[in-house]
């Protein structure tokens, strides 16, 4: 049994009876999962390793399509259509639903070119327009002060935390509707982690956020809603405070009190 609340806010994503099966497997990795994702909120997904939270996250921008044989079922509604449809234009979809990965993924090019990458893909050529957008994105990602004097330098010279904020700047530069964070701080030190968490809380003014994390304190600190997943199912979705203080499901309680996981 599962306890899944409805959200009062407008829903940016609506997941209905979603199933996902990895290539070569007969049993679905995610089973009949339904949940709302609230607009301009942070939704955290927690659960033990292998519970399917990253798999679910990577379905929202159809990342699984990069590898052959993976199968989706059910629906994920976004802007009134099912994005699991085979006819969905993945390139447009991914400009609207961006992603930040576990390890920083700075491209082997300059800091400026990294942030301008998505903008150039969308055909922006005007130099001053590019300069403005890159500067704004770097400021929004709270890294402008550290890199403003060395925009032409190789992005791989930055520290891990700086690279992760650079990746966030790159993702928000194209002004997506949703940002998916896949354990964005698990490779970072505590101070960098704090920086990213503050950033996540600020960004939700403009973009809806789904964040997968292994760190329950992090989920409690940054999110408005938290979903607890176990063995490919969503056990509970609730307001973060409620879920951590008065969980409705026994499994949730056992997990957040550290009885397993």
């Amino acid at each position: 049994m599962a306890t899944i609340i409805d959200v009062p806010e407008e829903k940016i994503l609506h997941v209905n009876n979603f199933e996902f099966t990895y290539a070569g497997s007969d049993v679905p990795n995610i089973k009949k999962l339904s949940m709302p994702i609230a607009k301009n909120c942070v939704t955290a997904l927690i659960g033990p390793s292998g519970c399917g939270k990253t798999t679910l996250l990577r379905s929202f921008n159809r990342m699984h399509d990069l590898y052959p044989g993976n199968k989706y079922a059910g629906e994920v509604l976004f802007e009134g259509r099912n994005i699991l449809d085979v006819k969905e234009d993945l390139i447009t979809l991914r400009t609207k639903i961006g992603m930040i990965f576990q390890k920083p993924t700075a491209f082997p090019m300059s800091i400026f070119d990294n942030v301008a990458y998505g903008l150039r893909l969308q055909g922006m050529k005007n130099r001053s327009e590019l300069n403005d957008r890159v500067e704004k994105s770097l400021k929004d990602a709270a890294i402008w002060n550290e890199v403003s004097t060395r925009l032409k330098q190789d992005a791989n010279g930055l520290s891990g935390g700086q690279q992760q904020r650079l990746c966030i700047a790159r993702a928000i530069a194209v002004e997506p509707e949703i940002l998916l964070f896949d354990e964005p701080t698990s490779a970072l030190d505590p101070i960098s982690t704090q920086g990213i968490e503050i950033l996540v809380s600020e960004l939700k003014e403009r973009v809806s956020i789904v964040i997968v994390t292994h760190n329950m304190q992090q989920a409690a600190r940054v999110s408005d809603y938290t979903g607890f997943m176990y063995l490919g199912e969503l056990i509970e979705l609730g307001q973060t405070e409620e879920l951590f203080v008065t969980p409705k499901e026994k499994l949730t309680e056992e997990y957040i009190t550290g009885k397993f996981g």
Binding site: I91, R94, F101, F107, P108, Y117, G118, Q122, C167
Partner: peptide
């Protein structure tokens, strides 16, 4: 992950290869 990051920004495959993987 570098390829995935480029795809996640909406890059078509040939651009991912030429601009990110080749580099």
């Amino acid at each position: 992950t570098l390829r995935e990051a480029a795809f996640a920004l909406g890059a078509p495959k040939y651009k991912v290869i030429i601009q990110v993987v080749y580099r």
